[in-house]
Design a protein around this nucleic acid. Sequence first.
DNA 1: GCATGTGAATAGATTCACAGCG
DNA 2: CGCTGTGAATCTATTCACATGC
Lengths: 231, 231
Amino acid sequence: MPNRPARRVPEATVARLPLYYRALVEAADAKVTTISSERLAELAGVNAAKVRKDLSYLGSYGIRGVGYDVEYLLRQISRELGLTHDWPVVIVGVGNLGHALANYRGFGERGFRIVALVDADPAKVGQAVGNLCIEPLAVLPRLVREHGIAIGIIATPAFAAQEVADRLVDAGVGSILNFAPAVVTVPPTVSMRKVDLAVELQILSFYQIQGGGPPGPSAAELGAPEAPGPT
Amino acid sequence: MPNRPARRVPEATVARLPLYYRALVEAADAKVTTISSERLAELAGVNAAKVRKDLSYLGSYGIRGVGYDVEYLLRQISRELGLTHDWPVVIVGVGNLGHALANYRGFGERGFRIVALVDADPAKVGQAVGNLCIEPLAVLPRLVREHGIAIGIIATPAFAAQEVADRLVDAGVGSILNFAPAVVTVPPTVSMRKVDLAVELQILSFYQIQGGGPPGPSAAELGAPEAPGPT
DNA sequence: GCATGTGAATAGATTCACAGCG
DNA sequence: CGCTGTGAATCTATTCACATGC
């Protein structure tokens, strides 16, 4: 244990750690053993100063005059992000989106495994999706307990989202990813992130009208060589 | 035309306009004619000071001592977000996710209409999804021209994302929503937003480990009565 | 009187630029 | 000598608090 993991990692930094993680996995796959903040920045699509600042919140994991050891840094970031754990996930709401999420490869790859599907619609309960069977909302507490589920995904229509969130929280889930286009509130002990597809399009629509894209060096500076080999 | 639309709307504000829009639609549906910044804040899941500051960037659309006229404010925000236009959208990559997005209601509701589906896989070309037929990548320029497409959605695997983005840009698309877990760069004239599902889960995983959620009044203050009527 | 609109204060994030060290 | 790590400077966003005007 070479270095204290620093006091508090800023939110913006946390949101970028997964990008560094992905970039480092690519680098490791390409047999790169050492990487500079500049190269890592290119691969992650940010700038080098940010990379160094961000990594400095985790500890002094680099070697001056050289760069970062890819494998070592990867381990540190994995640990920080909790990717050494396995994270069983439940999806609530198996409509279009829930269905796609259930089949989505790319979760499993990083330790997130969909272990249960839940839907309030009695007509859907019992149906199989992939190798899972849709369960009724009522058994949520048991599912959470038995599988040790800590993360729930809400993929219901908007009107059901708050109720589902409440049930997830009651069942003991500590993190929620909400795809429903609704304001959902949870106790401060629970973390929640929102993904709203219509909101994203509306933001694009705004900039489309205003001409040009959002402010800042949206590409230019980042416009460096893309990651090599197949991902 | 009562008021100059103010100089430059901050990025963070732009990202919240869709929330106000949604909240105002709900209020209008509930026959509310006038709304205070405080109530609007509740419905949108933010705080009142932010609402007032944000709206002030658009102009002085409120009435002191009273609040905002719901219909009027709704029109102003719609105009600002370009929701008075119709936005034809193309989805590139019709796998699990692309398929779900193609069928997703909730886009169409706000003027975003999927008018074309494109996939590089010859085996998929020709297949019908909903009332659309999957087209080959080669015809992208024609599709963009004929439908007046300004927004493209990338739902391909990571390795194809940059190439698809380049083709979208070449074809004349001005905005891109990228679901592929890859760094993609576009010219500064094009706006792009990313949605990465694995990244979201990794962020949640971080906070799950750290105990408690992210800093700030993640709920408490926002924990006000949820929107009433069915959404 | 009361809720907006906004300058001023604060907090947070990004960038700069260079000291420090391998 | 080169690249990290980091204080200081800058920029952006949020929050406060109150003058303003209906």
